[in-house]
């Protein structure tokens, strides 16, 4: 840092600047504190709208109720399944696609045809309705595979990965070739071990993506029983889906304000990401710069 004379104008600027930045920071954090406060408040306080940033009439009732709420637990289970299976499959396809495409024309003559084949999909897509029809016709409707298979290959992530593979010194590959290794073992034993930082980056992008997506659940799941967590949360928000509320719920709902229950569920849907993202931040920043300007 340079040394600056602290003139009166500079001091005034600093005060205004810091206050402004603090306000913006609050705008990003306070909504979540409010959400938590409502979810921990008594029904009466929540329905009256008297909760601000601190619980009024503190109670864990809403969270206790969620612990036995089958819809919530079931959708959480679907999400966990989807996150694990989906991330694993996505990553595998990213490796398998990025490796051949990272070769030069001399090493892989057909590379350019494959590149075009994949690149076209980044420019043109069939759109919502034809995609829906194809997913339906291939028999994936109402199964967890509808949330995994259609998006199993992210071309964008494969491009990030192949750019990283290209940065690996050719010597390493040639040494392995001389030792008699084939492409499969070069990928697993040479490329992947040295690519851990970018694997972590792309893996985290993918994982958060699977945790967060909700619209595909609405689109491809006929039965709310198969909704992943975020899809289930979206129905609470839009309340387009009345069939989610069961009879047992109704009696409890009379005691428990809908508001505390809803905020508790939304908060839990955000919690895992809120807990890990400060640590993931640096990977994300790295991933963002991997994809930007190349010299």
């Amino acid at each position: 840092m340079h040394f600056y004379k602290q003139t009166a104008g500079r001091k005034l600027f600093n005060v205004v600047n810091l206050s402004f930045l603090t306000i913006v920071t609050f705008m990003c954090v306070v909504p979540f504190i409010h959400l938590l406060a409502v979810s921990l408040s008594s029904n009466a306080a929540a329905s009256a709208g008297s909760v601000k940033l601190w619980p009024v009439g503190f109670t864990l009732e809403a969270y206790g109720f969620l612990g036995q709420k089958p819809e919530f637990l079931r959708s959480l289970g679907v999400t966990l399944q989807r996150v694990v299976l989906g991330t694993a499959i996505n990553m595998l396809l990213v490796f398998l696609t990025a490796y051949p495409l990272s070769k030069t024309h001399e090493q892989f003559r057909y590379r350019v045809y494959y590149v075009w084949f994949f690149a076209i999909t980044m420019f043109f897509g069939g759109g919502l309705i034809p995609t829906y029809i194809v997913v339906k016709e291939t028999g994936l409707m109402n199964s967890i595979w509808a949330l995994i298979i259609p998006g199993a290959l992210s071309v964008w992530n494969a491009v990030l990965m192949l750019n990283f593979f290209r940065g690996i010194p050719r010597d390493m590959e040639e040494a392995a070739l001389i030792d008699g290794a084939g492409h499969w073992s070069i990928l697993w034993k040479v490329y992947l071990p040295v690519s851990l930082p970018s694997i972590a980056t792309i893996g985290l992008f993918t994982l958060v993506g699977h945790w967060n997506s909700w619209f595909d659940g609405i689109l491809y799941m006929n039965s709310p029983d198969n909704y992943p967590l975020q899809t289930y949360l979206s129905t609470l928000v839009t309340s387009i889906n009345i069939k989610m509320i069961t009879v047992e719920d109704l009696s409890t709902l009379q005691n428990l304000s809908e508001r505390t229950l809803r905020t508790a569920q939304i908060f839990l849907g955000a919690l895992p990401i809120m807990l890990v993202y400060p640590f993931l931040q640096k990977y994300f920043i790295k991933g963002m710069t991997v994809g930007s300007v190349k010299e």
Binding site: L92, T97, V135, L153
Partner: peptide, 23 residues
């Protein structure tokens, strides 16, 4: 081996990206 590695990605793209384009 390079062609083999590309099979899964090509299949998924063919069905779920080119399929809707044809659709």
């Amino acid at each position: 081996p390079l062609h083999l590695m590309l099979i899964p990605g090509v299949l998924v793209t063919l069905i779920y990206a080119y399929g809707p384009m044809f659709g």
